[in-house]
């Protein structure tokens, strides 16, 4: 799986490269618009991570060029501008997703995975982990072909974990994703514990080959057995 990172900040570029390499992607990086044009014209990538504000041009122009050349590379826009206008323009120009800075690496990974899955299954979303299958659009989970009953929160939590399997999941990130942005008002995430406990119990009872483990002081991690 080939990924191109177009990002002018050397620090962020380095860390994204390190992380994605660790995630078993083949990663290439460029730091400016000119180099990005050359790379994208010559090669095909499974995913392009595109910073909109580049020192010598706009990422949106690059998107236009890609469209002109009929390239089918998937593009995730990464922008410090958390503005709706940019997001809409970017998505209109054929970008597949939009991620605002600052973001979590696990979030980036989840977005890339989701994008890859969508391409692989031609638009139909399906997440597989061992004998468990999850269809996000249908709110449907099956273990060994048998349906698993989950409430909405449990489903959202499982979905969140599955798209970040093998990674440490921070409890506050999980809470914000499942309960909404403003959940940060609580200083204690104990209410999460009850939901996770129920979910683990249901997974175990259904014979799913996955488990959610606690990471001390930090959060949880989904492990395929």
């Amino acid at each position: 799986m080939k990924v191109l990172i177009i990002e002018d900040d050397p620090d962020l570029r380095e860390i994204m490269q390190k992380f994605l390499t660790k995630e078993k992607y083949i990663v290439e990086t460029v730091a400016n618009y000119k180099d990005a044009l050359i790379k994208t014209a010559d090669y095909a990538y499974d995913c392009i991570l595109l910073d909109i504000m580049l020192p010598d041009g706009s990422g949106l122009d690059l998107l236009r060029k890609l469209k002109e050349w009929h390239k089918s590379d998937s593009v995730i826009i990464i922008s410090a501008k958390d503005s709706l206008d940019d997001k809409i323009t970017g998505l209109d120009l054929g970008a597949d997703d939009y991620l605002a800075k600052p973001f979590h690496l696990s979030e980036l990974s989840a977005r890339i995975r989701s994008l890859m899955r969508r391409n692989k299954f031609k638009g139909e979303m399906l997440i597989e982990a061992g004998n468990l299958k999850l269809l996000p659009d249908n709110h449907d989970v099956t273990v060994n072909g048998k349906s698993l009953e989950l409430n909405r929160k449990e489903f959202d939590i499982l979905n969140y974990f599955l798209s970040r399997s093998g990674m440490n999941v921070n409890k506050s990130d999980l809470a914000e994703s499942v309960w909404g942005d403003h959940i940060d008002m609580v200083d204690n995430y104990d209410f999460l514990y009850a939901q996770i406990k129920n979910l683990r119990k249901k997974l175990k009872e259904s014979g799913a080959g996955i488990d959610i483990k606690a990471v001390y002081g930090y959060g949880y991690k989904l492990i395929e057995e």
Partner: peptide, 27 residues
């Protein structure tokens, strides 16, 4: 500030993946 903040957060996130970290360090 967005980019430096992103870098800090992401470096920490990478750090948590290090298996040799103690519980105390994780905390």
């Amino acid at each position: 500030l967005q980019t430096p903040l992103a870098v800090c957060l992401n470096r920490l996130e990478m750090l948590t993946e290090d298996e040799s970290l103690t519980d105390k360090q994780m905390e």
